[in-house]
Design a protein around this nucleic acid. Structure first.
Lengths: 215, 215
DNA sequence: ACGTATATCAAACGAACGTTTGATTGTCAA
DNA sequence: TTGACAATCAAACGTTCGTTTGATATACGT
């Protein structure tokens, strides 16, 4: 035990602070000194509790990122339970709401996507954790939910491409909030999030709203 | 002039090498020493030609990234000229092909998206260059092309959301090639790229291929 | 041939990096 | 009260960082 800066253990404070800094600045731009200073503990604490900087980074994913992804997944399933059916419209709306409005605070959501995107750009061991523990199970589950509603002629690859397309929109509108804000001209307030979810559902079900006589 | 390692000026070699390394590893993970060693010149060359490391990074965008984005845009316009019309189908196909197959080599495309994504995650001055010189003009042009074909009731925000949705797919299938590959189970070979472009066109025009009786 | 930019070089600057060490503290069973 | 263990600490290790300096080499107008 310890005198406890802020009522949490040094180990927990290190994980929390490290996640914030790694998400905001990236692995290489964050020093062990900055982490330990922000966590209010000694420089050697990282090596004492985690062995080295890299293991601390991996534990941020193991102990914080994955559990947050599971909270999003639980929210999706809760949303879906609240629907009348499991039609594609219900599934997509539940998914979009879980990710865009969802159970995470704005900060949590930002850090979550920053960490994930950094791993996509430049994968480390943490990418395998993300892929195996959250992405693959999610895609498999969505496939089984949507498959019965799709044309029989649609093969497995097309089904996956459809799911990936929905995911791409949800992810893009989340992780690229800055350019999206600058282009649409306003911030992500609650009414816009509502319109955004509705747009994703509409677009996913019908594509562009093209005039009949112009197709 | 100089003895010219590799028939290009030291300045050009620095820009080329710096772009590769910045894209692969990120700004903070690349040292001036690694850049100058890879470029086969002296450590002080960066400060002589660009003043400092940060200005070198910005010039990578100004002199290399933007011009490559313009090559993609030119390819899009060339694709569209080859079409019979400027219908949404033609526009989307031209766009998807310009970005996914397009004029860039695999390496160029990878670096291009890595640099852009890093700026979206953690914007620097370079983000303004990307936004003003390529994103805003592109979105404006696409809006004017598609607007005539969309329902009159669609307001400006909905039009932008539609364009952003198409963009999100194209960007995602490009920059997230690694997780996409791992999920669909094979690499980005030419036949798959063709199917991918077709899927993006289909999905953008009609959304999910849902059975009529299941809607 | 000479003087002047332009370009490249080796060497060094102080600062910050990840990690290790050994001493010091607090806690609790014996 | 004592001994053992877990946790924290200040201090130092060697390395690498971005940048600066002053010397050297090359090209070109005069």
């Amino acid at each position: 035990m310890s005198p406890d800066n802020g009522s949490k253990t040094t180990r927990d404070r290190l994980l929390e602070v490290a996640e914030t800094l790694f998400a905001q600045k990236g692995y290489d731009a964050v020093s062990v000194r900055k982490i330990t200073t922000a966590a209010g503990c000694n420089l050697a604490a990282v090596n004492y509790h985690f062995g080295n900087k890299k293991t601390l980074y991996l534990n941020v994913f193991r102990e914080r990122w994955v559990s947050r992804a599971q909270r999003i997944r639980a929210c999706f399933e809760e949303n879906l339970t609240g629907c009348d059916d499991t039609s594609p419209a219900s599934v997509i709306q539940s998914l979009a709401e879980a990710l865009i409005k969802g159970p995470l605070t704005d900060k949590e959501r930002l850090f979550h996507f920053q960490l994930m995107t950094r791993e996509i750009i430049k994968p480390t061991e943490a990418f395998e954790i993300v892929l195996e523990e959250t992405m693959k199970p999610s895609f498999e589950g969505l496939g089984q939910l949507l498959q019965p509603y799709l044309h029989e002629s649609i093969d497995e690859e097309r089904t996956l491409l459809n799911i990936l397309s929905i995911f791409s929109m949800v992810l893009y509108f989340n992780f690229a909030r800055l350019p999206v804000s600058k282009i649409i001209g306003h911030a992500y307030d609650q009414p816009f999030k509502d319109r955004l979810v509705q747009h994703i559902v509409d677009f996913s079900l019908s594509g562009l709203p093209v005039k009949e006589d112009a197709r």
